[in-house]
């Protein structure tokens, strides 16, 4: 089938402001991903198209973008899912919102990773591990408590879909909260109080207005809004 692709283009070396690039591809299969068709544009028609990608199956988190208006990973979005009844499929691709565009579909990820680093996204336990040299024990139930948030691949689909983040980019954003949640609710970790203090601050969880865009955007199907709510609950009740 035929595909009409509109890509938001911006080359800081040439363009004063972003523009739309229009491309037509033939022989597109419904099983092709958006990454596949972007590659075809880049390889066959216009090598200047810039995007990040790596694993091509939804686990590395490189290629989050706005596809027909909704955040998703290009490699996990099949053309079949974007078909809208007509013979020619129309797909529009833009960079994710809320972060400066550096070129075409590439945005500046540094602010995103700065927020991530601000929530102590690492395991803290200063007591000596078991004397027998073995693992710390953890029950399957305790392990299950934070399973959902261990799936995060830091693709930024959630944070860049969040109106509260668009309104004020000092808000740490859903992804950083997900990362903090993964440790706050890990029975082995000892720094939950410090993390809760960070997240209880002006630019922490209370910026979340429970809009659910993050949950809808997550390509790993993490219940992001729930995770944020659990952190809010912990802050309110003091119970983890």
């Amino acid at each position: 089938m035929q595909l009409q692709l509109r890509i938001r283009r911006f080359n800081p070396e040439k363009d004063k402001k972003p523009r739309w690039g229009e491309y037509t591809l033939d022989n597109v299969s419904p099983n092709d991903s958006v990454l596949d068709v972007l590659h075809r544009v880049k390889w066959e028609q216009d090598g200047t198209l810039a995007l990040r990608r790596s694993c091509a199956h939804g686990v590395c988190g490189s290629d989050a973008m706005r596809i027909n208006g909704a955040n998703a990973l290009a490699c996990k979005t099949l053309i079949a899912r974007l078909k809208n009844g007509s013979e020619t499929v129309k797909v529009q691709v833009e960079p994710i919102l809320g972060m400066p565009v550096l070129k075409d579909l590439i945005v500046d990820m540094e602010p995103f990773f700065d927020h991530y680093k601000s929530v102590m996204p690492y395991f803290v336990n200063d007591t000596p591990p078991p004397a027998d040299g073995r693992e710390r024990l953890q029950s399957p139930e305790d392990r299950a408590r934070f399973d959902d948030t261990t799936k995060c691949i830091l693709c930024a689909a959630c944070t860049s879909s969040c109106p509260s983040f668009w309104a004020n980019d000092r808000y740490v954003g859903p992804a950083a909260i997900v990362q903090a949640h993964r440790f706050i609710f890990d029975s082995r970790d000892q720094a939950y109080a410090e993390r809760l203090k960070i997240l209880g601050d002006t630019f922490g969880v209370w910026r979340c207005r429970t809009i659910f865009n993050c949950t809808n955007a997550c390509p790993r199907e993490i219940e992001v809004t729930r995770a944020i709510a659990e952190v809010k609950m912990a802050l309110t009740t003091g119970i983890v």
Binding site: N125, P129, E135, L137, Q138, F183, D186, D189
Partner: peptide, 16 residues
């Protein structure tokens, strides 16, 4: 074991 001590969330058997 060292990875576990770094916090890696391995799945667990019922005995932990």
């Amino acid at each position: 074991i060292e990875l576990e001590h770094m916090g890696l969330p391995f799945d667990r058997f019922p005995n932990g």
